[in-house]
């Protein structure tokens, strides 16, 4: 337990040393994206509070994107680069010797980052709730709790995905391309830009068979009170996370064989 706590502290320390980078990489993108989306949707509604697009009024849409931002702040992770670097520079072999496994090391990093991100998300939420209180009148605390719980689970999903991409370094010179592909696709398909219920019928139905809706759309809907059953959502998420981790296990074993075989 103590070593976990130590690692978490070191991680925080490192994060804060590169303070500007941390803000620019983790917080900045989410805030900017939120700003762009709000501007765009405001303009699409032409500032008119009467019009409805699909099931959304202007204030519904703004609320939707507000919660999207909070979910993103909590759940996004960016760890593939670190893992790639570890593999490329041959640091993986040091982890193979240490009593602290690579998995444990990555997991502590995940926990410490999650704690920082939850703190930032709650801070933003507090600011928004005090300045834009009109958008917060119709939600219930229990729904918020459900949504935030989902967000934490979603962060495990992001983490696993990033971990998997990082592992591809065993075969690929540069993995950032795959990370960008995944990010671009998920941004659209998880309803981050446009709520999934505005997608064409067939597309929305197709997406139900993928993990994407659970990454953003479902948790946001949960907070807004129309997300359906919490257990179903959780079950689906856990199912996809398990699948991801099975792939990770497989890829990790393959990669390690390659790695020790090549004597890197």
């Amino acid at each position: 337990m103590l070593k976990w706590w130590q690692t978490i502290k070191v991680h925080w320390s490192n994060t804060l040393v590169y303070r500007v980078n941390f803000l620019l990489m983790v917080v900045g993108p989410v805030l900017v994206f939120f700003f762009v989306k709000v501007s765009l949707w405001y303009s699409i509604f032409e500032g008119n509070t009467e019009i409805r697009i699909g099931n959304y009024s202007l204030s519904d849409m703004l609320t939707y994107h507000l919660w999207t931002m909070i979910i993103m702040l909590i759940s996004r992770s960016y760890n593939f680069g670190k893992l790639s670097e570890d593999i490329r520079l041959g640091r993986v072999s040091t982890y193979l010797i240490y009593p602290f496994s690579l998995w444990e090391f990555q997991a502590t990093n995940f926990v410490s980052r999650l704690l920082i991100q939850i703190f930032i998300a709650l801070f933003c939420l507090f600011i928004l709730m005090t300045t834009f209180s009109q958008y917060f009148n119709n939600f219930e605390a229990i729904n918020l709790a459900k949504g935030l719980l989902l967000a934490v689970v979603v962060s495990v999903f992001w983490f696993s995905l990033q971990y998997l991409i990082g592992l591809l370094t065993f075969w690929l010179e540069e993995t950032w391309v795959i990370a960008v592909i995944a990010e671009t696709a998920i941004q659209l398909l998880s309803g981050n830009m446009i709520p999934l219920d505005l997608f064409p019928e067939w597309a929305a139905r197709l997406l139900d068979y993928t993990p994407f809706p659970y990454v953003t759309f479902v948790p946001v809907k949960m907070i807004m009170g129309s997300g359906g059953d919490l257990l179903t959502a959780l079950g689906n998420l856990v199912f996809w996370i398990l699948i991801l981790n099975l792939i990770i296990l497989f890829v990790w074993r393959k990669g390690l064989k390659l790695y020790t075989g090549a004597g890197m």
Partner: peptide
């Protein structure tokens, strides 16, 4: 210059 430890990091932030 950075003072050692977490407090030092926070301060230099």
């Amino acid at each position: 210059q950075k003072e050692p430890g977490f407090a030092g990091t926070l301060k230099s932030f």
